[in-house]
Design a protein around this nucleic acid. Sequence first.
DNA 1: TTTGCATACGTTAACGTTAACGTTGAATTG
DNA 2: CAATTCAACGTTAACGTTAACGTATGCAAA
Lengths: 340, 340
Amino acid sequence: MRKRQSDSGPVLKDIAVAAGVSIMTASRALRGVEGVSEAKRHEILRIARRLKYTPNSSARSLVTMNSDLLGISVPNLFNDVFAEMLAGMRRTFDMAGFSSVVDTTEYSLEVELAWAERLLSWRPAGFILTGTKHHPKLSQTLRRSEIPTLQMWDVTDDPIDVCVGIDHVAAGRLVAERCIALGYRRPGFVGVSEGRDPRAEGRMAGFQAAFAEVSDAAPLCLTRSGDPNSFVAGRDGTAEMLACHQPDVLFYVTDHQAFGGLSACVAAGLSVPDDIGVIGFNALDLTTVLPTPLTTVRTPRKLIGTTGARHLLARINRIDVPRLVTLPVEFVPGATIRAQ
Amino acid sequence: MRKRQSDSGPVLKDIAVAAGVSIMTASRALRGVEGVSEAKRHEILRIARRLKYTPNSSARSLVTMNSDLLGISVPNLFNDVFAEMLAGMRRTFDMAGFSSVVDTTEYSLEVELAWAERLLSWRPAGFILTGTKHHPKLSQTLRRSEIPTLQMWDVTDDPIDVCVGIDHVAAGRLVAERCIALGYRRPGFVGVSEGRDPRAEGRMAGFQAAFAEVSDAAPLCLTRSGDPNSFVAGRDGTAEMLACHQPDVLFYVTDHQAFGGLSACVAAGLSVPDDIGVIGFNALDLTTVLPTPLTTVRTPRKLIGTTGARHLLARINRIDVPRLVTLPVEFVPGATIRAQ
DNA sequence: TTTGCATACGTTAACGTTAACGTTGAATTG
DNA sequence: CAATTCAACGTTAACGTTAACGTATGCAAA
């Protein structure tokens, strides 16, 4: 007979013995399910507290075939974008008794796959993924499994399970249409790094497509910079572009890059917004305190988080919810594009 | 006899049967431990892949009494400070095969406690906590347990287990000494919210103590603002302070608040740095691209993450490491204080 | 041949919990 | 008063995995 490990403290049996009941009664009392008288339940809870009983989730999970673990995968936690979505959902899940197993993929599908496969061994209660493009193996596994899955921050016609996000292509179009109405005809897009961020590419595609429909518009000019500091990336990317092209409006992948780009425009002797328009994306807190308010697009990050959390929770409880929710974005005219 | 759940796919026994070996041999082969010939190991791995075998971590955890789950608790994920520490450590842990169960406490000890107690039921491999002040119940539990624990971002003489951080009191002193040398005598501190952030209070205490040792220095004036947008909080907090007091140098709780404060100073008709000095904290990316470079303190956030991760990993593997590591901070003179 | 001794496996008994079902005794009913 | 019902428990048998221990096989040395 093997000895029990000394470190783990009392188990259900110890509580049951101390309370003079069977293991099953103790289990029922601690879980708060029917079948135990109120008096006994209180007695058992009291004893469990006194003995500092810590339940063993592995044992529970082994027999119930599920867990209170929730997988959340985001590209990174900088720039507050994903942090805000996460904050929006984490509180909901915490209150519902779930723990969040977080991954940061750095836009690598392989990293996400490896993380998800590890997590699958714990039979998680649900998955929350950023975007709608994943490693084919992962999509397939999740579609086959019964595990509720939320895809957020982007939308698709064919979600794995449920999907709450914004239409990035439409957002790009929206920006382009505003620009076109203001007379801009030589568009530029700054900051998209090839094949990494499908959402950024979507915005660019929408932006470009809308301009392409205007007869006298110039083709889109592009640039990107890999600097990890996104302010610097925006500044350097813009400087590089201005050296070769003459765009009259620049749409940036994020506000941070737009802010960096602003200084590059000024440094190049261009006046904003007379010579060149500058447009960011996300409407981060930062933009509200800049000397010149940045033109940008407000994305409902917190709302995506809370809505997504609610819908996923509903799915976990086997309640029907709409499989696809597209939330609106809002164009925020600042001082960095022409007025009217 | 109860039927097996249909959704979970094959178990170890199915692999063993398919490979014509015993369960234990399959287990050894899949775990990569000794006692299986190379030929058989490859055969078993091939079959496991073909059958899409997913191991059951609960079952493993139940018998081994541990898991590959790692608890990480931070106050929040905004402002990039905690995000950078997290990024610094997460990669290390990922490569070592651990999954991160993340909590955001919003500076509430109760929230942290509740999260930790839930996680304890999974017998995590380790805990990573922000700061050195926790709910007494949690400190006690962790000290008693054998679970490796890292406290980061702050230091203490009596860590629970291992501790990697910076000395916030000394950092406050450092800033004050620079200010005093430059002739500043009327200090102000902006942004600390009472009883929430012990590190911020430490910096303030060091800042104040150093000034108190100078005979002709005025007492510290204080302000705080609860606005969730820290730029706005810095701006409004500063405006409020300037209405009642006449400090000649302001030390902010973060760079973001300092940036917001800068605009309040300008709006109040004060010239920076002639009338008033402005000093931030953290040396975030943002500060490098501001029109006037912000004076600030560079904190080794990424290094705290990587060092902490290494040390905790060592503890998990029962290797001895120093229990306390204090990393240095660096004063970054910008254009927002007097020169020499 | 025997002996010694690895290496490569198989068998069995836990690990802590819960689902399913069985039992009891008291209250309610005809 | 016997029959029925039902809440409140207890008993048994898994859940999937690993540790400990036992056994067989092969090979070299004696």
